[in-house]
Amino acid sequence: MAVYGEMILWSFVFLLADAVGVTVIFPFTSTCAVRGSTVTLPCTFTPRKSFSDGQREVPLKIVRVRWCKNHSVCQETTPSVCDSDSTNNDPRYQYLGDMKTNCTLQIRDVQQGDNATFRFRMEADNSKGHFTNQTGVTVRVVDGTKLRIIRSSDDKNTSRGETVTLLCASVCTKHQLEVKWFKDGHTLSETGPSLHLSPQTAEDSGSYTCALKKNMKTLSEPYSLQVEAGAADGVLRLVLGVVFGLLLPVILLLLFIFIIKRKLAAAEDQRAVGGDPEQKHPDSIYSNIMKSAQTEAAQQQEPARAVEDVSYASVQFKQKKQEGRRLQAADDDVVYSSVSSRG
């Protein structure tokens, strides 16, 4: 019995010595994910640099990395969700790390079967460098959970020019979500869990919602955002008001002077062409009036003169006619007298 206990102790010491300098660190060992979302499992590791073969120190190099599901060893023929040596990995699982220090795994379009514990394993060019983290990260998948919108500050009323961040979150807030953002029912171009509004304008006011890209049942409750005029806008309006108040009288004065100059210029042009009747000398005006009066009088007298001339001509004609008749009678008397004497 004592010998058996000693063997276990030495085996434990050997394992510790064999794993000296090897670390795998997870920021969290458990998380939850909404079905249809994307969950990221951050991970960093420090591989064993070398080992001693009894004569010299032999360097080690990591040549393979793997992630397994619900397996404590994750070696040899154990199924892997992600294997750097495989070309037939499930595309939902993406290794975001490298062969040096980063071992982050991302699971896209989370399904109910991802409700499991995931463990990371590194393998070196010598078995002395192989290592599997036993702790792993446990993922709990939830279904049918509505999302909610959280903002960077508690005040829903913000001013123009400020920066506001809206976060689309669920009961699981430690993983990345691929979502659709909506404003007043219209789809926005952003797909990340955070919506940055910077700098804010009046057009940013509205009702915002978000939902998982592949699960619209998770649509959040509307979040109302009201952008108010900021202090800078108030100062700007005040400055504009003062400037406008000072410039308005000047503008009106310049406009009045411009109109007067236009009128004077028009008067000068009219005098240059033919003169302005209102600006003529009074004597000229009087002369024109007298000439007009005389013209009108002459026009009125011409018909009267014509009547008088006709009357005069008629009288003269009558007189001449009567004188002619008297002369004819006289001649007739002379002839008759002459005949009578002869007889």
Rank of each mutant, 00 (worst) to 15 (best):
E203Y: 07
A124N: 01
R121I: 11
D114L: 06
Q176K: 08
A169H: 02
I150A: 12
S194G: 03
T101Y: 05
N88F: 11
S127A: 10
S84N: 04
C82K: 13
R148D: 00
D125E: 10
S159P: 15
N88C: 12
D83L: 10
I107E: 13
L197V: 02
H130V: 04
K128D: 06
W181S: 12
N126W: 04
C103M: 00
T101C: 08
H196Q: 14
L197N: 00
E178S: 11
R148T: 08
V164Q: 09
S127G: 15
C172M: 01
K156L: 08
V142P: 12
G129C: 01
Q134H: 11
V81R: 05
A169F: 08
D90I: 09
S72H: 12
A116E: 02
M122Q: 13
T132E: 04
S127Q: 14
S205R: 13
Q200L: 15
G161P: 02
T138C: 01
S127L: 14
S127I: 14
L166V: 02
S152V: 03
P193V: 07
H196I: 12
P193Q: 10
I107Q: 09
R119N: 04
T104Q: 12
L188W: 14
K156I: 03
M99C: 00
T138E: 04
N115G: 05
V142L: 13
H186I: 15
A116S: 13
N115C: 14
T201R: 10
A124S: 08
R140Y: 08
F131T: 00
D154K: 15
F131Q: 02
D83P: 04
L177S: 06
T163Q: 07
T77A: 10
I149K: 04
C82F: 04
K180I: 05
